[in-house]
Design a protein around this nucleic acid. Structure first.
Lengths: 204, 204
DNA sequence: TCTTTTCTGTGTTGATCGATACATAATTCA
DNA sequence: TGAATTATGTATCGATCAACACAGAAAAGA
């Protein structure tokens, strides 16, 4: 915990947030070191001293993204009184977040590194793991709905979680195409229209 | 139509198909010239003589992709007897295509260039235009369903087209995560579960 | 004050990027 | 056959990539 040596002249967390925005807008390999250092307001050696490598910086940036940008969405999923409201809140908050124009559109975790490359397997694996965690969170919330009697016992929580996660991923591409909040809500409405049938048919 | 000069020693169409697969797997900027020339079996000057530039090659590759890989999906959309079957076929054929393991997973047009960059606006614009065309094709098929009395007059064809197009885009990411055919069909089932509600609520 | 430690800015590294110069080979036209 | 034309292979081009060497600057401990 000592502070020997020359102190850092930049805010590490703030610099990380700037890096996150660059990765968010450009993707992992689309973000060049010069673009990153320019956005962070530091020189390349300072970046490497503070974060290790471009790859390590990206992993820290996605971790920050998960903790900040995605927090309210996944919190709402847990705290909504019913599974149906949980999914609806989850999708509506996604639509709201993806439509904001003061930041990159869509999701860093969904779009950050879709093209596998031998040299960046760790990046792809990390994002894939986070997407799998999101799917798991959806599935668990649905299973809670089953346990609480809201959904029928034979409701296929895994398949439903896959569907809603896929809709959210599609919304990232939709947002990248410049979709408005209203257009994203049209997708949400479509996804929620499936709810009644999914829960009902199995129950009937 | 003359054939003056030394004849080309490679099959231009075959080389283009190889380039298409590289772009499909790696994305536009993820595909390097050395990777492209290796896959095409030619040297860099031959590539530039035959196609002009990396950007022009990509545009030709996406055109080939549209005409070949996507053809049956969009043909089924037009030829299905009802709008409902058209959408179902559209999604089922998508699931089948995206799950094939002998080619890259997901859609080249959906995933080819998601990260806007000043130096490749033409690429993004072209793919965005093709995605908009796909949305338009879905909307027109739904409007035909309205005209033919299958769907209520006030059915929101634009919103529904947005929803189904978004589901298809999400399936590209799902496929990139290694989803099986069955997993993709779970998403299709979810999307089709929305149909009854979407058509019914408006009609009621 | 002096040593140690850590950070900063300049400048540069080898590798790779997309794209070509150039000489040669292979074909058509005259 | 010879001139014109086009493709091929080798060998690069300048620019940019991610990453780092190095010397000087700024702090703490002695």
């Amino acid at each position: 915990m000592s502070e020997r040596g020359r102190p850092r002249t930049f805010d590490r967390t703030l610099a990380l947030r700037c890096a996150m925005e660059v990765f968010w807008a450009r993707g992992y390999e689309g973000a060049s070191m010069s673009e990153l250092t320019a956005a962070m307001g530091i020189n390349s050696p300072s970046l490497y001293a503070a974060f290790g490598s471009k790859e390590a910086l990206f992993l820290e940036a996605t971790e920050l993204y998960s903790r900040t940008e995605g927090a309210d969405i996944w919190l709402a999923l847990e705290e909504a009184p019913t599974a149906r409201l949980a999914i609806e809140q989850f999708l509506c908050l996604t639509a709201k977040a993806y439509a904001q124009t003061d930041r990159p559109q869509g999701c860093l975790i969904a779009l950050g590194a879709l093209h596998q490359d031998s040299s960046r397997g760790a990046i792809c694996d990390d994002l894939r793991r986070r997407r799998a965690e999101n799917h798991s969170a959806l599935q668990k919330r649905l299973e809670r709905g089953v346990a609480e009697g809201e959904l029928p016992a034979d409701f296929d929580c895994g398949a439903a979680a896959t569907f809603f996660a896929t809709v959210q991923h599609g919304m990232s591409i939709q947002a990248r195409d410049g979709a408005s909040h209203a257009a994203l809500l049209a997708t949400v409405a479509g996804a929620m229209a499936a709810w009644k049938t999914m829960a009902g048919i199995v129950a009937a």
